[in-house]
Simulated scan of single mutants.
Amino acid sequence: MTIISNKGVVLKAHPKGMPKVDEHFELVDRTIDIENLKLGENEFVLRNLYLSLDPYVRLTLKEHEPKHERTINKASKKQLVQIGQIIIGAGVSEIIKTNNPNFKVGDLVYALNLGWEEYSHIKSDATSNFFFINKDLLKDIPLSYFASFIKRGGLAPYASLKYIGKPKEGETIFVSAAAGFVGQLVGQIAKIKGLRVVGSAGSDEKVDYLLNELKFDAAFNYKKTDLNKALSEYCPNGIDIYYENVGGQTLETVLNHCNQFSRIVVCGMISQYNLPFNEKYGVKNLEIIFLRSITMQGFIVSQYLGTDIQNEFEKDFTEWIKAGKIVYREKVIDGIENIAEGFVNLFDGRNIGRTIVKVSDY
């Protein structure tokens, strides 16, 4: 018998506001007998190597509220985690047992639907969300990068900026939460495309990172600077593209600085994630959208997966990384037992870049 540990993190209670490690998450001791596990048709078993911690997971932890039914689409409703269930995220894994002809033992894969656990038994109806990792690329790129941005993570800023933002050389882009994982990549892609890049962040350390390492044209600490005044100073000719990661009052203020025919790419609204429905900020100047013919569009990264856009992204990013055009910072945490704390810390404003949990050595 080869019974081994398979610790996992389950939802202990639905967070009503800011999630707390001990109150809302529980590390459960479990085991798995891989040798004697009977696999159904097309099923396989993964050894999870790196798990990516993403703010969007917070949206899957809320309790379903029927009175706000219209705010949740059917797909999102299915993704809500129930009490006692393993929390789901993205990451990189190795196939260690398979009954699927498309996957063999030793394959490395990136997946959207990995449990926060050491090993995952993947059923046949979930195998479409797995993407192969070319092992040859590991000579130049760390494996953790595939969990964070070479696959879905980087595809989000790349595709959304290119196909929704439609950047043109010489334009001005403002990026909120610019030192975060998505923001730092958006800013660098925009620089490569010849834009003037302005970003906001929540600490002087982050502002220094944006200016001196990522070479933003301007950056400021929104906690120390009035946003309206900062945008007037650093975007004197207005904003052509706003990359939205924050929402709330920030969106309201930025709208006043948007130019005619500007584009707003809505990636996230992290300031609103931990608020009850009736406490979310109501933006008061949405009429600017039609008065200035502004395009405002959100997206789900899965719409780009498996498309030619994904192929473009992987080719461009691989070349940019090798050429040193992309500077990237990630925080790697060791051990499944630290995943809940790492996730909660995403919302305290201190993180720079993406947080990755190393579950196992490769």
Rank of each mutant, 00 (worst) to 15 (best):
L46Q: 04
V45C: 00
D29G: 02
M269V: 14
G8S: 13
I309V: 15
F44H: 01
H14W: 12
I321R: 05
C258Q: 10
H121V: 15
G183H: 02
R58L: 12
G17I: 00
K166C: 12
K229D: 15
Y163T: 14
V359R: 04
L51E: 12
A190C: 00
I133L: 06
I122H: 02
V92T: 13
A13R: 12
T172V: 12
K284L: 12
F174A: 05
Y50S: 10
K62T: 11
F149N: 09
A126W: 05
R196A: 01
L143D: 08
A126K: 15
S148V: 10
K151R: 10
P66Q: 03
I339R: 03
Q272C: 09
Y328E: 13
H24Q: 11
L210P: 05
V109H: 00
G89P: 02
I339G: 06
I150L: 15
D316A: 12
F131Y: 14
N42W: 02
S5Y: 04
Y281R: 02
I83S: 06
N237R: 13
Y56K: 11
D316T: 04
I122V: 15
K20M: 13
I86Q: 11
L61D: 04
D22A: 12
I321P: 09
V21L: 06
H24S: 11
E337A: 10
D136R: 11
A178I: 05
V175F: 06
R152C: 13
L143Y: 03
G247S: 11
K77N: 07
K168P: 04
P236Y: 10
I309K: 11
K151D: 08
E118L: 02
Y362P: 07
F131R: 05
S120T: 15
K325D: 14
I164C: 07
E205P: 00
D208W: 01
D348R: 03
A156G: 08
N129A: 14
G180E: 10
G298Y: 00
E244F: 08
A230P: 08
F103G: 01
S360M: 10
L251D: 13
L210V: 04
L251G: 09
L155V: 07
V266K: 08
E35P: 02
V10R: 03
K162R: 15
